[in-house]
Amino acid sequence: MLEVKGLTVAYGLVEAVRDLNFSVARGTVVSLVGPNGAGKTTTLNALSGVVPVAAGGIALEGRDITRVSSHRRVAKGLVQVPEGRLVLAGMSVRENLELGAYRRPSQEVAGDIARMEELFPILADKRETPAGSLSGGEQQMLAMARGLMARPKLLLLDEPSLGLAPLVVKMIFEIVKELKSQGQTILLVEQNVYQSLAVSDYAYVVENGSIVLEGAADKLSADPAVARAYLGQTV
């Protein structure tokens, strides 16, 4: 589904990520994990085309999209649910969902909204509420539903659990599992390493802009080095 080769992103003279190589297979959930500031969000933003790529290439379904503009990437099925959710606070829940389907034929929108309200029942209750007055967890669900409205081939989730209460975090990961069981391909960026490995098939550990470790998610969570560095366990 996604092939990334030698991806380098620089802010001025500082390289935020350097020579990243990774891939996401169709129907799998892949995690990029690592500490704050490792370059995970930068990587997703490069995939979405909102930060320029200094070197390397990005291919979606075998086609190079490195120079494709950000809105065309969404049309091609590469959709990001950003960190901090970025819901449109002044617009209603329904309008946010409609804008998620901006690149889709309008006759499919009503049906897709109904599907989203089934997956996230809270959104049905708050249809006409301004998105800005939702709680953090509700905003995260709205952001995910809005991303799904684009019918992504590849869904990029950036820190979906950030700043949420433990119970809500659990719900968010349940939804990721549910999406996975429906066959949705997902690239997940998380600081919550333990939970994200639990829902992933494969994972890459990013540190200081480079991949330092990769492997099947269950192998990584059993790896004593990973456990020590990221899972807060002393082995």
């Binding site: 950000s70 969404v74 617009m91 804008l99």
Partner: peptide, 24 residues
């Protein structure tokens, strides 16, 4: 209108609008 909603989205947050596939 679709374009009207896009204008409001861009007015509110250009980054969010870009990620929604809007040609900002």
């Amino acid at each position: 209108a679709r374009i009207g909603k896009a204008i409001r989205a861009v007015a509110e947050n250009q980054r969010a609008a870009r990620l929604l596939g809007i040609n900002v």
